[in-house]
Design a binder for these strands. Structure first.
Lengths: 346, 346
DNA sequence: GTGAAAGCGCTAACAT
DNA sequence: ATGTTAGCGCTTTCAC
């Protein structure tokens, strides 16, 4: 039993004694070459059953934990996916990230998460930082990126998936839905219910603004008159919803329908309306966006636009997973669509 | 101008032509040794201004992006921090993660985020996976970990910060607050207002349950009688709040005070009560937990327990940042406290 | 099926 | 201030 004297490297001048257990020390203990341990770990079927058992025993005894930095460097496969999102504090993205993360984790990948703060410059910085980690693929929210950011992304030559929007010209593949159509669909629904006036409260992020513009245009086209527009900072908060509703009331809006760019904003609008003695939906009807978990349980239950956020994350993961192993992925653009969920609030 | 013939490695048998721009190719173009480029990047003050300029020019021209896998392997400093959280879909953790991430990013570190799903076994798996990436430090939520998980964590010999709870015996350093005291403080506040009955709705995660138990014990101790207990799955949702309140009403609870383990749950309780014609706070008083963004803007405004989540993230980051460079960090346990924010709902 | 050898792209002594 | 050298801990041909 001389396993005490492991850890001495072949070279005379090691920088540190390196007491850590490495592939090499496992190999020594199992009485095989390092390459065999590597095979046992990564291609177990290429190793004789008996050898495999010895190696696994050595791993168990030593508590060996493969160094993925070294593995990634040697193989040019980091087994890392990067995901850049506008904000982790926005619930609407959380489920997508969750399903994305779970799916790729099943396949042995980890996710490096970055936050762009709804800002193209920051997005570029984060993308740059993250690319240094040599991810095998990258997940993005939205289709608008700084020009240099696009360049860097393309230069990385890795699979890319853009989500939460749709475009005929994705960087690589895009899975999302059409925000113009969302605005139009809500406009169609609301104008069909004979409201006296229309308003739209939107956070100022690219996609929310797109829905707002499409909604306003479609309402007018259908003879609903000019839509009162309100915007908030990017992100979503109940407080901002209350504020914007208060502002609408000041502008004379006490009867009509309001389309909000998120359910949180919608809830704020509802609460402010109710706090002012306006009835929802009799006086003011409100439509949210996202169909978050709580939308079905507000009082009254919120009419909103449902997006399959979980499917979006899983599909994005599948696209990337297929591409990293050069499997075919049929569609460069996959439109998941959406649906207007009619409940009591509008 | 012979920079066209870069990319040929010194060795005869390169595995791939390796067209990518590396430190070496930048060095060649700048007419310096690779080590100088490395210095220019990591210790610019150790390089002559004129050399630095040439190197930077070469970097700009080539669009060189340092390979952090290689750098981390060579230096045993990955510049990666790991953060394991119960769920990224729970807003209460989002701000802590955000401030933690921002603070460490300023110092050049990236954050690898893992989700434990409120489960100790999963936490251990995630910790193991993440440790393979050789993070320089690790951020955890909670102080309960599987025994093997603790072992692995300690074996990694890196700074560890546990958060969202407090203990005299942290793995390394802990920054949080005392859940027993929270339960007691709310009990003290509520019993002081002469309520007829008491209830507590809590998600079944370790910390929420601790608050619930402490609340119930303290209410009884103060003569408030037996507290009606309700629990939900881990996580928080408005829907569950409504359900639990409905259940309480069925159990005969129509007047009294309810302490909820999250603001979301509290909002659900409020909405359910109001939907049933009960007045808040006259009939049922509601106290939330977390003081999320929306708590101050519900109707009526929610009385809740405020935690400085941003400070918690920043403090955790500072502790880790200090430790990774062997700077002293005074306190192994830092108690950030909490406060009961009295608003209209209770 | 297994081993030997040569790197992956970088950093860190050690010289100069 | 800069260059030289020897690895960091793995994976991957290529032999056997």
């Amino acid at each position: 039993m001389d396993e005490v004297r492991r850890g001495r490297r072949k070279a005379a001048r090691a920088r540190r004694p390196s007491a850590a257990v490495t592939l090499e020390s496992v190999a020594e203990r199992a009485g095989v070459a390092p390459a065999t341990v590597s095979r046992a770990l990564n291609h177990p079927h290429k190793v004789a059953a008996e050898t495999l058992a010895r190696v696994n025993a050595a791993i168990a005894q030593t508590g060996y934990l493969p160094n993925l930095l070294a593995g990634g460097l040697a193989s040019s496969r980091s087994r890392l996916f990067a995901a850049i999102v506008p904000s982790i504090a926005n619930l609407v993205y959380a489920e997508t990230i969750q399903s994305f993360t779970r799916r790729v984790r099943e396949k042995g990948y980890q996710v490096l998460l970055g936050e762009s703060g709804y800002d193209l410059r920051t997005e570029e910085d984060v993308v740059t930082a993250v690319l240094g980690r040599r991810p095998d693929a990258i997940f993005l929210i939205g289709i608008n990126h700084a020009l240099d950011c696009r360049r860097k992304l393309l230069a990385a030559k890795i699979p890319i998936v853009e989500t939460w929007d749709i475009t005929p010209t994705p960087l690589d593949v895009v899975v999302g839905y059409d925000h113009d159509k969302v605005g139009q669909a809500v406009a169609e629904y609301l104008t069909g219910r004979g409201h006296a006036a229309f308003a739209c409260v939107a956070a100022s992020d690219a996609r929310a603004l797109k829905r707002q513009a499409a909604f306003a245009a479609e309402v007018e086209r259908r003879g609903g008159g000019a839509v009162l527009l309100e915007t908030t900072l990017p992100g979503s908060s109940l407080e901002w919803g209350r504020q914007r509703m208060a502002s609408l009331v000041e502008r004379g809006f006490v009867r009509g329908a309001v389309f909000c760019s998120s359910d949180m904003l919608g809830l704020g609008v509802m609460i402010e309306a109710q706090a002012r003695g306006l009835r929802v939906p009799e006086d003011v009807a409100v439509v949210g966006f996202g169909d978050l978990d709580f939308a079905a349980h507000t009082h009254p239950a919120m009419t909103t636009v449902k997006i399959d956020r979980t499917l979006m994350g899983a599909t994005a993961a599948d696209a990337l997973l297929a591409r990293v192993v050069d499997q075919p992925w049929p569609d460069a653009v996959v439109d998941l669509g959406f649906s207007v969920v009619v409940r009591a609030s509008a």
